[in-house]
Amino acid sequence: MAINSLGIKAIIGLGLLSCWAILARAQEGPGAAPVDDGGPSLSDLAPVRLYSVPNIAVEPPQPLPPAGAADDPASTTPVAGTAPDPSSSTTPDIDLEGAWRKHLPLYAPGAWRPMGVDVLAQDDPGGGDSAGNEHWTLGTHNWRYTRPNGVGLTLGNDLAAAPQWGNSARLGGVQLSDQLSKGNAAVGQWQYSAMVGALDYSPSTSEGGLTYGPAASSSVLRYGWSPQLTLESQVEWAPAMDTLGVGGTYDTRNWGVWKAGVAKASQDMQHGWRYQVGYEASVLDTLKLSWTNEQRSGGFADLSRYRDYSVDGGQTSNRWAATWPTGRWGDISGTYETVDTALGPSKQYIGLSQQFWLSPNLRVALKADHERIGGDYDVGLHFSIPIN
C-alpha cells in the first residue's frame, strides 16, 4: 500500500510540472523572446554564470634595454644626470642587485657590475634627448634638467657617476654633468660629472622612507687623448675618508676594449690601494665576453664601502662574464667569479640572469647565484608592472 502511494505522488508531481511547462510556452507564443519581468528565474540558481569577455591581444615578449640603466629607475640616457625623451619609455629597470645582493655576506662580489657601476656607458633605447630640446623630467627619486649641448642637472637621489674601473655610490643632493657619454671621448674633449650631497642609505621603496648618512661628494673627469684612448680620474670624499683614482680605456677597434685603473684611499688613519684591469670583446657580434681582475690591499675604502668599512687584509678577485642576446626574450648573462681573501677561505660564485618583457605591461627578471664551495645559493623572480 505504501508503494502505491509513492507511485501516485510521483505521477501527480510529474503531471504538475508538465502542465506548468505547457502553460509557460503558451504564454510566450511561437518565436517570442523571453520576457524579463525583473523577478527571480531558474537561471539565477545556476552555480556558473557566463559573461562575454573581449579578446585582448598580447604582444610577444620583448628584450629589455641594455644593462647599465637599472641604477636609475627614471632614466636610461647615455649621459649621466640627463633625462630621456618624454615619448620614450620611462619604465624603471629592475634593480636585482638592490633586491637580492643585501642578503649575501659582505664579502660577496658585485655580480651585476663587471667593472663597477658603469654610469658612463648607459644606452638610450628611446632615442635620447631630441636636438634643440631642453626640459625638466620627474623621475622616481629625482628631477632632471637636460640641455641640447649635453649639460645635465639632477636634483634628488641618484648614483654618482663613476668610471668602469671604479665603484659608484648613491647620494642625495645635486649632480652636474657635461658631455658625459658612452665609450671614448672625442679627441680633445673634456667630460665631467660632479655630485655633492649625503650618502643615501634608504632601503628599497617597499620597505620604508628616506635614510641619509654623512655628507659626501664624488666627481669624474674624462679627456679624449686620441680616438682610441680616453683618460679618466675619480675623486671621492666623506668625513675621515678620501679616495683618488686614475685610469683609462683603450679601444683596439677590432680586438675589444681594455680598461684599467689604480686608486689610493685613506679612512680612519688607514691607507690602501686598489688595482683593476679588464677586457671586453664581442664574438660574431652576438656573444659578449668580459674578464676583470681586481686587487685590493687592506685599508682601502671608497663611498660604496663607507658604511660597512672594516680593516681587512685585502682581497683578489677574477670575474668572467658572458652575455648572449636572445631577441624577444632579452639577454641571458652568465658569470663566474673567484675571490681570495687574506682573512678567510676562498669563494667561487656562479650566477645566471635574464630580463625580458613578457607583455607590454609585464616585465620579468630571473636571477640565480650559487657559492660553489660553501653551498649557499640565491634565487629570485621579479615582476615589474608599469603604471602610467
Rank of each mutant, 00 (worst) to 15 (best):
P114R: 10
D331K: 10
A24Y: 02
S359F: 00
S353F: 02
G156I: 04
I350W: 12
A2D: 06
P78M: 09
L289F: 14
Y349F: 15
W225I: 13
W258I: 14
G380M: 00
R147D: 07
Y51K: 07
G7A: 08
D308W: 05
L104I: 01
Y192F: 15
W190A: 13
A342R: 15
P125G: 07
T341P: 00
L176D: 00
R319N: 10
G13M: 04
V53G: 04
A301C: 14
E371F: 10
V174H: 06
P227L: 10
I373V: 12
G278T: 01
W291D: 04
V262C: 02
S88I: 04
R274M: 12
S353N: 06
W273T: 06
S266Q: 14
G98I: 02
S304E: 04
G248E: 10
G116L: 12
D302C: 00
G330M: 01
W20A: 10
W100Y: 15
G127I: 13
G81M: 04
K367E: 03
R49T: 14
A99R: 09
A46T: 07
V196N: 03
N293I: 08
I56R: 12
Y51C: 05
G98N: 12
T292L: 11
A194S: 05
Y201C: 00
P61Y: 07
N149S: 04
S310W: 12
V48W: 04
W20N: 09
V119F: 02
V246A: 14
G256D: 07
L180T: 01
W20Q: 10
S384H: 06
